[in-house]
Design a protein around this nucleic acid. Structure first.
Lengths: 203, 203
DNA sequence: ATTGAAGTAGACCAGTTGGTCTATCTCTCC
DNA sequence: GGAGAGATAGACCAACTGGTCTACTTCAAT
C-alpha cells in the first residue's frame, strides 16, 4: 500500500491529517516486513511510505533502527491485543487463556497467514547482535509473565512450567498455520491448551 | 569451512578422494544456510565449496535450484534420522515417539541452535512459487505419516489428529530452542508429548 | 597421442543493496 | 517577512546481488 497525501485513512479515526514521515515509515515497515520479511529493501520501504530517503536516516539512523523500532511498536500492539482478548473473555483465567489460543488459531487459519513476524525476524537475522533480537526476547518474556500470571490466578501447580508449554504451543500453532495450510491447527492447539491448563489443577 | 583438495574428511570414512563439485556445493549449502539462512550469497557458497562459478549453474541451474536440492537431501537425511531414532528405541510406539521428542529436545537445547532450517526457509522465502516450499511441504507430509503410523500402531483413537498435535509440538519446541535460550523446552515438550500419546488410548 | 567432457578462474554484466550528501521546498514561529 | 527546522527529491557511492560468458586446465577414454 502506498500512502498518499490526500485520502489518508487512519484506522477509522476522524482526523484526516497525514501522519509525519516517521509514522509513515513505521507503518510501511510493519506492513512490508509482515508480507516480505525483514529482508525488504530500503527503497521499497521509502516508496511505500512516500518518504524521502533522508528522513529514514534522520529518524532511525538506518534500516536496522527502523526494523527494531517497528518491532517494538508491533510487540506493544500485540501485547495490548492479548490483554484485550483476555479482558473480553471475563474473569476466569481458564476462559481467558483459551480465548487467546482461539484467537491465534483464527489468525493461523487464514490461508494467507505469513507466519509469526517475530519468529521470522529472529530466524532471518543471523547476526546475533542485531537490535531486533532484544526486542523479540523482551516480548517473549512479557508473554511468559502474562501467561504465568493467569496460571497463578488459576492455582496452577507449576505456573512457570505451564507458561513455557503455552509459549511452545503458540509458536507451534503459528508455524503450522504458516507452513501447513489446510491442516486446521486451531482444534489441535485448543485441546493441547486445555491439557496444559488442567494438568496443574488440584482435584 | 573451506573444503580443500587435500585432507578431505568425509565423515570418518576411509576414502580420501575429494567429492565432485556438485557434492561440495550441496555440503557447503547445507552448512552455510543452516547458520546464515537461505539468504547467503552465491559468492560465499562458491568460496566455501571451493568450486567454480560455472559449476553451480551447470549442476543446479541457479541458486534456487541449489537451495531446493540441498533441502531435498537434508529432508531425506532428517527423515532417516527419525527412523533410526525410532528403530533404536524398540518396538513400543509410545517409547519410539518419546525418543523422537527427546532427541529434538536435545538439539533445541544447544545454545547455538539456529532454529529449524525448513521453517526458516519457508519464512524467509516470501515467494510462494519458490521450489523450496514444495520440498518442505513434502517433508512435513512425510513426518505426519511417520507419526500417524505410530499412533495407529498404538491404537490411538485419533491418529491423524495426534500427529497434527505432535507436529505443532515439534515446531514449537524447535522455535523455543532458537528464540528462548535457557528456557529448557525439552521437559515441557516431553510432557506435552506424553499427553498427546496417552490422550487417545482406551482405558 | 588426441579428443572431448568437466572443472577452474575470473572478467564482466545490469540491477540492487544500504548509506551519504547537496539542493530545494514548505511550514511554523517569532 | 525572515529565519530555521524539517521534509523532499534525487544524484551519487562502493559493495554486493545472481547470472552469463570466455579462456584455460585437467583428466579419462579412445
Amino acid at each position: 500500500m502506498i500512502y498518499r497525501v490526500k485520502g489518508w485513512h487512519n484506522h477509522g479515526m476522524t482526523t484526516s491529517a497525514k501522519p509525519g514521515p516517521r509514522e509513515r515509515l513505521l507503518l510501511a515497515a510493519q506492513e512490508l516486513t509482515y508480507t516480505q520479511g525483514v529482508g525488504v529493501g530500503v527503497d521499497a520501504l521509502l516508496k511505500a511510505a512516500g518518504v524521502a530517503r533522508r528522513s529514514l536516516y534522520e529518524h532511525f539512523g538506518g534500516k536496522d533502527g527502523l526494523i527494531a523500532e517497528m518491532l517494538r511498536r508491533s510487540t506493544a500492539e500485540d501485547e495490548e491485543r492479548y490483554r484485550a482478548t483476555m479482558a473480553a473473555a471475563g474473569d476466569d483465567p481458564r476462559v481467558r487463556l483459551l480465548a487467546v489460543v482461539d484467537r491465534l488459531g483464527r489468525i493461523a487459519s487464514d490461508p494467507d497467514f505469513p507466519g509469526c513476524r517475530y519468529l521470522a525476524a529472529d530466524l532471518a537475522l543471523s547476526d546475533r547482535d542485531h537490535p531486533a533480537h532484544e526486542v523479540t526476547r523482551a516480548y517473549r518474556r512479557t508473554l511468559h509473565v502474562l501467561f504465568a500470571d493467569e496460571f497463578v490466578a488459576l492455582g496452577h501447580a507449576r505456573p512457570e512450567f505451564a507458561a513455557d508449554q503455552l509459549l511452545i504451543l503458540v509458536d507451534g500453532l503459528l508455524a503450522a498455520g504458516a507452513t501447513r495450510p489446510g491442516s486446521e491447527p486451531a482444534a489441535a492447539s485448543r485441546e493441547l491448551a486445555e491439557h496444559i491448563i488442567d494438568s496443574g489443577l488440584g482435584a
